[in-house]
Write a protein that binds this DNA or RNA. Structure first.
Lengths: 214, 214
DNA sequence: ACAGATATGGTGCAAATGCAACAGACAAAA
DNA sequence: TTTTGTCTGTTGCATTTGCACCATATCTGT
């Protein structure tokens, strides 16, 4: 995709967006699949837009367990204050799932409107505001799921969110079973077992990754 | 405290902040302790600053369990997109812990700079941006704690965060035992038991709400 | 100081979850 | 096609957690 189609430049004409790039210290880079693209280290202040490919934001805990914090596809944005991960305990990285082309931008330059060259800089700030509250809402949903006390409740809560988002009782899981277990922070085999019980109890129907709430 | 001392008006002179109030449709209200101040209903778009008192953002689940999403004191800000709670499953409310005076503002008016009356409107947007990423960071920490798999790991993770924030191995819990259990989404008595085991294992020392990591 | 309410600490038991191990399914590579 | 590796579903067993109680401790208002 073209960088100007990103949510970051929503409402800004492509030519004007193009003209803003030098001011934002834009730099494009390519990464092969599986490559580490970004680490949330203190002091770093670049943001990035994924132009091609898909990636995951993951945290590796000291004890070896892994948590998927976010899944990103083309148009996705990460880095700097756009995400909110502290490096306190585990380390947080952005890793390519497929080969990626990524546009890096200077976050500080983005949020401070310069009155000189960039007439649409204000729109950029507005867009960041909306991206930020959108991402925050996702995190809030995550907290809602994680604060459920049983595996069954976590699954039902998450399925409920997917159902609302898809506007249907039937939807497709965006995760493999392993990743879903990591996402919910539960044991994989315990989760698969619980899914079986839920099917037996007539709560859900599943065919591959397609789930229906009954 | 005075509204102009809120983070929302950071860097804006009090007189100028005063002049912005009508434009933001500001309205002050008082609430007694325990009173419901705000519900996150779809469509509502007012934000609020706590001038006096303290409050909690809580979610009540369908099954009766309660989750404390956030603790607010004077200067704290809540409402609209400033928080990120969806009403999908449980209902989310802001409730006074002590008597509160609160200033309500129109969120939409805040984030859309009007070129006419408010020369400092842009600063307001910048401040919202920083409040939003600050709150998001808190939420991210919350996810970090909740994604720990055992009660012990949740406690250690949370204690680690408090230790980093206080800059010391000894710190004071901001919660009662009941509220802490709700915050971590675990059973209270199981948590108290685990705290005892952790003391016996020499991991921590506790005296009332004062915890020391060993 | 008292009574009532609320918070805390504790225990036994049942249920849920994690863990390790294994077998079949599936997909990518040779 | 076979091979190889990864994902999935399953099971038995150990451990953790939730739950329902109870006994003290602490707080609050009279």
């Amino acid at each position: 995709m073209n960088f100007a189609d990103s949510q970051l430049f929503f409402g800004i004409e492509p030519e004007q967006a193009e003209r803003m790039l030098p001011c934002l210290e834009a730099a494009s880079r390519d990464f092969p699949a599986g490559k580490l693209m970004y680490s949330y280290l203190s002091g770093q202040s670049s943001a990035a837009v994924i132009l091609e490919g898909s990636a995951s934001v993951v945290r590796y805990e000291a004890n070896g367990s892994r948590t998927i914090l976010e899944s990103l596809s083309a148009g996705g944005i990460f880095g700097a204050d756009l995400d909110f991960y502290t490096e306190s305990l585990g380390s947080v990285h952005v890793v390519c799932d497929t080969p990626c082309r990524v546009l890096f931008l200077n976050y500080e330059k983005m949020i401070r409107p310069c009155r000189s060259a960039c007439p649409r800089h204000l729109d950029l700030v507005q867009n960041i505001l909306s991206i930020l509250s959108g991402k925050s809402r996702l995190l809030g949903e995550r907290v809602e799921v994680l604060s459920q006390r049983s595996i069954r409740d976590k699954l039902m809560c998450y399925f409920g969110q997917l159902s609302v988002k898809s506007g249907s009782h039937t939807f497709t899981l965006p995760f493999s079973m392993m990743d879903l277990a990591d996402f919910l922070s539960v044991n994989r085999s315990a989760m698969v077992r619980e899914l079986r019980f839920m099917r037996e109890d007539g709560l859900i129907a599943m065919k591959k990754r397609e789930v229906t709430l009954l």
